[in-house]
Design a protein around this nucleic acid. Structure first.
Lengths: 206, 206
DNA sequence: CTTCATGCTGTATAAAAATACAGAATCATA
DNA sequence: TATGATTCTGTATTTTTATACAGCATGAAG
């Protein structure tokens, strides 16, 4: 089984989650929407590649004819992502700490991956260093003020409370020892990596 | 849920088997072929009927948009306990809020039940009002100093950090607005309802 | 003996989905 | 600097799928 590129892994992970959540494989158009492709062919070629590398099988001439080569019931769960290097995709293999047997649907409206928290900037929201966040990633998602989001400012991943007033975006910590991040949309590169939909704290740190 | 005719039951059974085998719901044409219908509409009307009687759901405008209403993958999980009245057993039916699909083994060394937190007395340990604790309950369990436990003092359930010096037991909050509970073992009735092995926060309160 | 639900046939058609072809930009690698 | 793999855009076209409409036959129920 050939190795996947980060992007390919990301796409495979999404397909997996979709199939666990919906019990229905995605169409090219659905993939296109999820990843903001502007051409169904982007989805098509990715599927072809994943098929050629042996991660799934395409039944041609069949709507939603995607069959994963692994057993879904065993892979159940969500990928746990650790420290993400600046500018790299969240779900790249090298940042994965593993897979936790957590039902994505537990966190309605559903989680796509888990992220280990670094630092105490959200302490007063009850989010401590080492905690695991359940994150929902939707293309084109627009956060509401006050929501906690995983964002990326100039490549750097951070968890903060979202606030937008007109065109002024601030990422607010929940700890007086930290300062808000004011994002200048004309100068800074801002990406939203997802909405925090849950928190998990396991074992020793309690 | 309305009763099915023999024919409808036959068709539902076939759909179920197909979905377990293929992991892909059938199209109208596939149903037509399987039952030797000469019209796709035969399949269509059967599906409509099965949907109306509540056995499945049709997502319209979607290829293979058939979702069975029963659980193909039976989810086990842990009971979630809410406000427990003084002196009553933790797991009595009347205090159960429900069952969450959480793998007990996720929280090594394993959780036995989930408890909804009330109040802010453990705020500075990152345990907020409404959070869900994973609790391990073992007979004859002796907590280590510093561990967070679910205890019962004179019938009242509380979550605190355990401290024992010789015969003097204190239950310490993690919030300066609250006072420690000093337990006089000769006068007070102290039971340990378990050790906190994990925390779960879901959705809105984030 | 009518009425109604059930279980179909047969024909169409609109919408959804797969898939082909022709590029272009980026980036590692030779 | 050339080469090829990867990741995508943009446009078309066919095939699959869902779904509407008009009927017909049968048996059970009033």
């Amino acid at each position: 089984m050939d190795k996947l590129t980060p992007r390919q892994a990301e796409i495979l992970a999404w397909i997996r989650t979709r199939m666990l959540e919906d019990n229905l494989p995605p169409t090219r158009a659905e993939l296109m929407k999820a990843f903001d492709f502007r051409s169904p062919n982007a989805a098509e070629t990715h599927l072809r590649m994943l098929a050629r590398k042996g991660y799934l099988e395409l039944q041609n001439g069949t709507a939603r004819g995607i069959r994963l080569h692994e057993d879904l019931s065993e892979t159940m769960g969500l990928p746990l992502v650790g420290r993400v290097a600046a500018g790299q995709p969240m779900l790249a293999e090298e940042f994965r700490e593993g897979q936790l047997p957590v039902d994505p649907k537990l966190f309605s409206p559903g989680a796509d991956y888990l992220l280990r928290v670094q630092g105490m900037s959200m302490r007063d929201a009850g989010i401590l260093d080492g905690d695991i966040l359940a994150v929902r990633h939707e293309a084109g998602f627009a956060p509401q003020n006050g929501q906690i989001v995983v964002a990326r400012v100039n490549g750097e991943v951070t968890v903060k409370r979202w606030q937008r007033k007109q065109s002024k975006v601030s990422l607010l910590p929940e700890n007086p020892d930290f300062s808000p991040i004011d994002v200048d949309l004309s100068r800074d590169d801002l990406q939203i990596e997802g909405q925090v939909v849950g928190l998990l704290r396991i074992g020793n740190r309690l």
